[in-house]
Design a protein around this nucleic acid. Structure first.
Lengths: 149, 149
DNA sequence: CGGCGATCTTGAATCATTCAAGAAAATCTG
DNA sequence: CAGATTTTCTTGAATGATTCAAGATCGCCG
């Protein structure tokens, strides 16, 4: 009695069949923003019991295609998913541990959406990734350089 | 004889030993911007004869670490490399064929470099990927929808 | 011209993701 | 509500980019 009915409505509203795996995966992604596939599989099993990893892969693809979740994949990382869709927001990624946090772009609502030269491409999305180091990783390397000969 | 000496100077200047594989890989990346690892391996072999793929992987990592080339990896793509470094430029990526083109950001020199909220992260780079469809792929899907029931 | 250490070769391993075929379940229809 | 139909899930295996590891080779310094 909380968000379960909402999720079912979301799934059905997207033109998808409502199944237990889909509800559980959607719930998991809602609960754990930026979780990778493996984490989603684990969270889904916590909610549901046994689920094949293939089912989770299929569901993630279906939900992504329906626009209910968003797939993000910073360079060097595995696929991650988030349920915050529809708004224009971007991500900060830690170069060391891969941690991800949300940020709203500083430049108005449609940041950098106009490329200086589009080479004939029809652009529909501008994705921004801020690279840096999170607080924890910075603290680890700052005091004593562990290994850099 | 044209850029060979320059490349050697570049490699040495970066504090790396000058080897034939390194020169060839650097040349290959200069010649083919946005080539993936496999293409770089092929181009390198055209220049050098036999080279192990592992050597190319090692070299690409070394050159990337030294800042002589840049690794780019749009979501869903394998690693690609380019020799245009040091300037602030971004990429347009075709959702269908994965083609990549360079673009300079429309917003001044440091586009979106200031995140509205950095969550304590120390940000050192803002990477922008424009997603869309290239001219060819647009022409392919527009006239007659091949498959979309 | 050695010698040391970085770099290349060879060959195998990893691991996220995908492919494939059959079983189970969800929606539609009568 | 049963039956038919199509989608979705399960099981099990394959793919492929990238990495690991150990030994041979080669660049660079003195």
């Amino acid at each position: 009695m909380s968000s379960a009915p909402d999720l079912a409505a979301l799934v059905r509203g997207a033109g998808l069949r409502v199944t237990r795996p889909r509800l559980a995966v959607l719930q998991a992604v809602h609960d754990r923003p930026h979780a990778d596939t493996d984490a989603v599989i684990g969270a889904t099993r916590d909610l549901l019991g046994e689920v094949s990893h293939q089912a989770v892969y299929d569901v993630l693809r279906a939900l992504t295609g329906a626009g209910l979740i968003r797939r993000i994949q910073p360079a060097g990382s595995v696929a991650r998913y988030e349920a915050r869709v529809g708004d224009n927001h971007h991500h900060v990624v830690c170069r060391d541990c891969g941690a991800i946090a949300d940020v709203d772009c500083a430049v108005g609502h449609t940041p950098c959406l106009v490329a200086s030269e589009d080479h004939g491409f029809v652009i529909d999305e501008a994705e921004v990734v801020y690279w840096g180091r999170c607080t924890e990783c910075r603290d680890l390397t700052a005091p004593t350089g562990p290994d850099r000969p």
